[in-house]
Amino acid sequence: MSLEASLCAFLAQQIPGAKPEVRNLVQMSGGASRETWSFEAAWTENGEQRNRACVLRRDPRSSLLEAGLTTDRSFEFRTLRALEGLPIPIPRMYWLDAEGKWLERPSLIMELMAGEASPPAFAPGIDAAFRERLSAHFVDILAEIHNLDWKERGLDFLEAPGPGRGAAMAQIGRWREVYNRRRPEAEPIIDAAFGWLEKNAPESDRVTLVHGDFRTGNYLHDEAGNITAMLDWELTHLGDPMEDVGWASMKFWRGGGLVGGLMEEEAFYRLYEARAAVPVDRARVFFYQVLGNVKMAVIAQGAVRAFLDGDGAEPVLALIGFMIPRLCEDIAAQIGIQGDK
């Protein structure tokens, strides 16, 4: 059955009595971790014509992220449903096929949001007012995510880590498991880094919702510099808010030395402190920047593994593997491995 026909059948099951049509189904470019398709859904409900511009996000045959281990479509779907009504621009979640019973693989269907996709980092020379507005909105959204009451929002299902070093150790354990399962071969620097992370795991002073991939490149924006949609919530979890701060400010995501190509690292921290009304613990941020590099290296190794296994025909998976040496070099410098030069 074609994807279009599968979508029609799925929507007919989700909207009883309707005879939905799927139009203009197009696979969107990018999206190495998920297949992304745009389409229009049209149906008649109680005598009224309904139209929705939709995005289908479906697990690919081979993914950068190990389905079921690091991500779960239903977690992402339920989290975003729980965040509706907050000043966090997110797409509305429409329908979920958590098991892939209708759409072959686990999938969710959400609102198609307006806006231009941000690059991984903005290039130098963008308009100053645009940069300032975008920087402020970027940090405002991060502060909102970290300051929301996740218990009140019913996000307990994400499972809070234990106290003290629990948040850091949970993330180390999660990514070590991915590394052990998905690595094509042992990478000495990554093993060394896990040893360093375990020895240096910090205590957290609070547990918040963590986006898990909060950075330039994962949002849409308008011409004025307003973020119209924060996307890619597949790694969301409960943990240490400094994890998002560290991830967003990693060297890997910088452009022209600026966080996301937007602002100086210190300016980012100060803005966050002002908007979130909590101090940025630089030592914890550094720990999460190391963890961030390790995560990226593990993800890149998983991409190479998927490419080698041949269960996905995405050439970009092999290209992502070229990032591993650069990441390992950064990690070695961060954890103080001074080898012969």
Partner: peptide, 10 residues
């Protein structure tokens, strides 16, 4: 070497 480094680095 990876096993050794993971245990000796810190």
């Amino acid at each position: 070497l990876a096993s050794l480094l993971g245990r000796i680095v810190g």
